[in-house]
Design a binder for these strands. Structure first.
Length: 910
RNA sequence: AUAUCCAUAGCUCAGCUGGUUAGAGCGUCCGUCUGAUAAGCGGAAGGUCAAUGGUUCAAGUCCAUUUGGAUAUACCA
């Protein structure tokens, strides 16, 4: 029976638990951060360093956070934490977007009846609701481990935020960028209001389907003049607003002779139409390219008015290929009409009744107008066919009544005037991924002016007054005065106070001889809210403009990147950001979009409560976030494994440093063993790569580099063979202190390098270290890249050695399979190297027997025996070591003393 | 429909300016240890690089088309 010497070994000792228990532990860590006010301590520590500003894009304050929010906020936290450890002062002011439709509808769904409340009362309810949502999301974001000024966030409904937004508007007014125009909107005659897209529901509707002819009156050398264009429509009531017929420039059109008349329709549709309209003796007499029909003139079927033929890309080869165009009643029609300067006709009022402008149909509701128009068309001989069809048509989601398109007056911000500067600025910004400039550039290039008005109540009012003659008063001074008032009282006063109280004292206007003024009732597009944040937040709080970084999902090219650029350029002629990083969207394990109906939604809060925030953060770090990313339970499991490896490595390092005092026991680099130096050099390489990756926002490289180093190098190589020294040798033996020095350096560097990614874990690791330099690892700096002596030489030498080691390991494995040995301590190893390898071995200043973890080791300069494993540069003979196993260190040696100890252990114990 | 992007082992990713048998980690399987033990160590298996066509002596890498997917915008008269 062997004696038990376990007590004489210097086994690892630590309270750092093997199991993370992150869902339980992380809240405690976060509580500690809270109590010590870590955020402000970090800023205080970096007080005199230069700013690095990551300006937060505000999420919409509604509902629980989803995985996309988590991805976004965690990425930002990586940057904030890294930069704060790298020589910068990095404030992070989280923000929320709080105005707009979703909150209005959330309240409506909760049973608040808007019609029973004054706008001001309703707005107060919205505000209350929004602030609740902010609190909820704030709690959830904090649980992700995101550090920031949570006590003092920016919220778009805050008074000073509103005030700055108005100032931005004032500046744009002063530059002449704000004007009033018209635009077709979804209009619900049943609720007499404009509707947002989200308030529309598609339902089946029975509509008339009519074919209408337009007589050519000016053939423009391409036609004869006796032809008729045929259009098709399901909304006869829009015929009074017809101003043009659109054809596609690339489509071919045919002149069709029938027994009754000559028609112009798309060539490829002739056959279909012949059947549909019961034509007889059909013959195509001419084929004309659409683009040649441009400016041919027709007569409106019942007005003494022209309807010109124009070209539109929106035209498709359906129905007749000739599209009835009423710019007042359709988005496409409006756009193409604008191109041709057709003007806009909209003879329909708020209730959906035709106006005097329509002459024959005044007072008729659109449904009745349909009949009247058809009758009129028939009388004029312009109606070829009338049937009824059922099709999907937009309806008001509340009243369930069909909606119409109708032009209404709206406020616009001119983008045209800013376009050149915007394009220039886009080029000067650093985009990551670098296709960002193409994408945003393309959008700006063909972007129309920005419609900034909404016919709603929950938002920042458009601070414009109307004089008695309805002239709009666009006066920078007046608007800035409103800004001052909003700063003090909030924007609700716009709805509560009289116009005269909102205007500067003694304000007069030539168009208001009686000093009467009317307030604009429209509010601003929420994109204007968040788009003003560079001033409402950065400038307002004394932070530098432009920000160093915007980091958002790729949907924000159209959204926040875009709106912020517009207002930023309007304010300063410069983009509000120097760098823009965008990330992709989170898809499920199969690459499908997450949706409630598919049931594939992954909830970040659930992951946090089952695995922990650091696991979720590790996921963010592990994926290529610049394109779309996937998440699944399987992936989470995989990351948990990976996390365990990291955690265990930290635990092992900590456990073997229990008796190490950095100030006293550290061994200088030049006094270390060669292998120890090699490990430090590798660690230095890792440091270099990781820091470089952080600089490029390449967190996946950070993760992978460290992960590979830890599992492939540190754990399997260095930590494995050094146990024989750490446990066995005397506590303060030189070899042991060497190793502990290297361990300590690894522990500190890896913990710091990983701190931005898994801050809870590294904080926990740090709190288990002896000799802490700061109250938290987050109050330390990133490790520096060292310049070690003979770095390159040692590195190349040992990299070669590692391939030799691979051969040895393989030979040991073969021997294990052949039952020659079990554990490697059973082995006697003999190497038969070729010349180069022999030279390599000779230059190694290391204990190879120890590194290979075998009991006996020999290098022979002769031909390898048959039973050796043959590799390219070496043959390896593995035999069962013969002798006796030391009861303490388990090595097989030739002789043991009477206490069953080898000479080494005997020496150590004495 | 348009703009931009994505597609390499079961999973997450490498693969630079085209050049020998396409790499790594995780997972899987097998083995080993029992002094990191709900751990540690070792080995092995796994890929017609989304498809098709082209350029080239040579293509995962360049070009075109297609398919599937993502985001945004538009459209359904």
């Amino acid at each position: 029976m062997a004696k038990d010497y376990k007590d004489t070994l210097l086994m690892m000792k630590t309270n750092f638990e093997m199991r993370g228990n992150l869902p339980q532990k992380e809240p405690l860590v976060q509580q500690k951060w809270n109590e010590m006010d870590l955020y402000h301590q970090i800023l205080k520590r970096n007080e005199h360093k230069p700013y690095y500003v990551l300006h937060d894009g505000p999420p919409y304050a509604n509902g629980n956070i989803h995985i996309g929010h988590a991805l976004n906020k965690i990425l930002k936290d990586f940057v904030v934490r890294y930069k704060n450890m790298s020589g910068f002062k990095v404030p992070y002011i989280p923000g929320w977007d709080t105005h707009g439709l979703p909150i209005e509808t959330a309240l409506t769904k909760a049973g608040v009846n808007r019609k029973e409340l004054t706008p001001s009362e309703f707005r107060r309810k919205c505000e209350e609701y929004a602030l609740q949502q902010v609190e909820n999301q704030k709690m959830q974001f904090k649980r992700l481990g995101v550090i920031g000024d949570w006590e003092n966030p920016y919220i778009t409904l805050q008074h000073d935020y509103e005030a700055w937004q108005i100032k931005v508007f004032a500046k744009m007014v002063s530059r002449g960028l704000i004007y009033k125009g018209v635009k077709p909107v979804y209009w619900s005659w049943s609720s007499e209001s404009a509707l947002a897209e989200a308030e529309i529901e598609y339902m089946d509707k029975k509509s008339p389907s009519i074919y209408v002819t337009f007589d050519v009156i000016d053939p423009k050398n391409v036609l004869n003049g006796d032809e008729k264009f045929i259009i098709w429509t399901t909304t006869p009531w829009t015929i009074p607003a017809n101003l043009a017929i659109s054809v596609h420039p690339k489509l071919e059109y045919a002149v069709v002779q029938t027994s009754v008349a000559k028609y112009v329709v798309a060539h490829e549709l002739v056959e279909k139409l012949a059947k549909e309209l019961n034509w007889e003796n059909v013959s195509v007499t001419k084929v004309i390219k659409g683009q040649d029909l441009e400016f041919v003139k027709c007569k409106h079927p019942f007005y003494d008015r022209e309807s010109v033929v124009i070209l539109g890309e929106h035209v498709t080869a359906e129905a007749t290929g000739c599209v009835h165009t009423a710019p007042g009643h359709g988005e496409d029609d409006f756009i193409v009409g604008k191109k041709y300067n057709l003007g806009v006709l909209c003879p329909v009022d708020e209730q959906g009744k035709l106006t005097k402008e329509s002459v024959y149909f005044e007072g008729l509701h659109v449904d009745d107008a349909n009949k009247a128009v058809c009758k009129m068309l028939e009388e004029k001989g312009a109606l070829l066919k009338l049937t009824f069809i059922t099709h999907s048509y937009p309806h008001d989601w509340r009243t369930k009544k069909p909606i119409i398109f109708r032009v209404t007056p709206q406020w616009f911000a001119s983008i045209d005037a800013l376009k050149d500067t915007m394009m220039k600025e886009v080029k000067s910004v650093n985009w990551l991924p670098n296709w960002g400039d193409t994408r945003l550039g393309n959008m700006i290039k063909d972007r129309n002016d920005w419609c900034i008005s909404r016919q709603r109540v929950w938002g920042i009012p458009i601070p414009v007054f109307y004089a008695e003659n309805d002239e709009e008063i666009l006066d920078e001074k007046v608007i800035n005065h409103i800004a001052e008032l909003f700063a003090e009282h909030g924007s609700n006063i716009w709805f509560e106070w009289e116009a005269k109280d909102l205007l500067p004292v003694g304000f007069t206007h030539p168009s208001s001889p009686n000093n009467k003024f009317r307030k604009e009732t429209d509010i601003m597009d929420v994109w204007f809210d968040s788009g003003s944040s560079h001033h409402s937040v950065l400038v307002n709080r004394g932070l530098p403009y432009p920000a160093d970084l915007y980091l958002e999902g790729s949907d924000q090219y159209r959204g926040w990147f875009n709106s912020s650029l517009s207002t930023g350029v309007a304010m300063t002629d410069h983009a509000p950001y120097k760098n823009v990083v965008s990330h992709g969207f989170v898809l499920d394990g199969e690459g499908r979009k997450m949706s409630k109906s598919l049931g594939n939604v992954i909830d970040p809060l659930k992951i946090i409560n089952t695995s922990g925030a650091d696991i979720l953060r590790l996921w963010v770090a592990s994926v290529d976030y610049q394109s779309d990313v996937r998440i699944s339970d399987d992936l989470m499991k995989q990351l948990s494994e990976s996390y365990r490896k990291i955690r265990n490595t930290f635990r092992f390092l900590l456990g073997n440093l229990f008796d190490f005092d950095v100030t006293k026991d550290t061994v200088k680099y030049e006094d270390l063993g060669e292998v120890d130096k090699y490990v430090l050099i590798k660690l230095n390489e890792v440091t270099k790569e990781v820091l470089n990756a952080y600089e490029h926002f390449a967190f996946d490289i950070v993760y992978r580099t460290i992960n590979n180093y830890i599992s492939q190098f540190l754990s399997s190589f260095y930590l494995d063979f050094t146990k024989d020294i750490l446990y066995i040798e005397k506590a303060d033996s030189r070899a042991r202190r060497n190793i502990q020095t290297v361990f300590y350096e690894n522990l500190m560097r890896l913990a710091k390098l990983l701190s931005p990614l898994i801050p809870h874990t590294t904080d926990e690791v740090y709190s288990h270290c002896n000799n802490q330099e700061a109250a938290s690892i987050h109050l330390t700096d990133m490790p520096k890249v060292e310049n070690y002596a003979n770095e390159a030489e040692i590195l190349t030498k040992y990299e070669k050695f590692m391939t030799l080691r691979n051969d040895v390991l393989k030979a040991l494995e073969e021997a294990r399979n052949a039952k020659v040995i079990g554990k490697s301590f059973n082995a006697k190893l003999t190497l038969y190297p070729n010349k180069a390898t022999k030279e390599l071995i000779n230059t190694l200043n290391a204990n190879l027997q120890q590194i290979f973890i075998v009991s006996q080791f020999e290098v022979k300069n002769e031909v390898a025996p048959e039973n050796a494993y043959q590799f390219d540069n070496v043959a390896v003979l593995v035999e069962n070591a013969n002798g006796h196993t030391c009861a303490r260190c388990w090595q097989v040696v030739e002789t043991l003393n009477e206490d069953e100890l080898c000479t080494r252990c005997d020496r150590v114990l004495k």
